[in-house]
């Protein structure tokens, strides 16, 4: 169901990486793919009628435990986003440098190494 949509988004990103010939489009595919995974992580903790997993003043503990959504996936997604943020910055930096060297973003022309 809704997990399937994540899978479709993942495959869209994967398609972008495999088929596109432009470095920037490949990077976008990468980002879409990672977003699909992040979306999946957040969905894992979804619960109908759930509340924020932060204890408010004057809230009863038992009600909080019953209603609050699982906070762990939200922490995990934050960590994953940070990591992917770093990777994206790095890949953009490499792409800029590649453009500097080759004068193009087309990977058909960036082929000094044999397959």
């Amino acid at each position: 169901m809704i997990y399937g949509l994540c899978l479709i988004l993942f495959l869209v990103g994967f398609y972008g990486i495999v088929v596109k010939r432009n470095l920037i489009k490949i990077i976008m595919g990468l980002i879409i793919m990672e977003y699909a995974v992040h979306l999946f992580i957040v969905l894992v903790s979804y619960q109908r009628g759930g509340i924020v997993p932060i204890l408010q003043e004057g809230q009863s503990i038992s009600e909080f435990v019953q209603l609050a959504v699982d906070p762990l996936p939200q922490v995990l997604v934050l960590t994953a986003i940070i990591i992917n943020f770093g990777i994206t910055a790095l890949v953009v930096a490499i792409a800029i440098r590649l453009y500097e060297k080759y004068g193009t973003f087309d990977i058909n022309e960036i082929r000094r190494l044999r397959g």
Binding site: I17, V91, A95, L98, I110, L113
Partner: peptide, 9 residues
């Protein structure tokens, strides 16, 4: 850079 890009992806 080319190898690193491939490796990174």
């Amino acid at each position: 850079l080319e190898a690193a890009f491939k490796y990174l992806v």
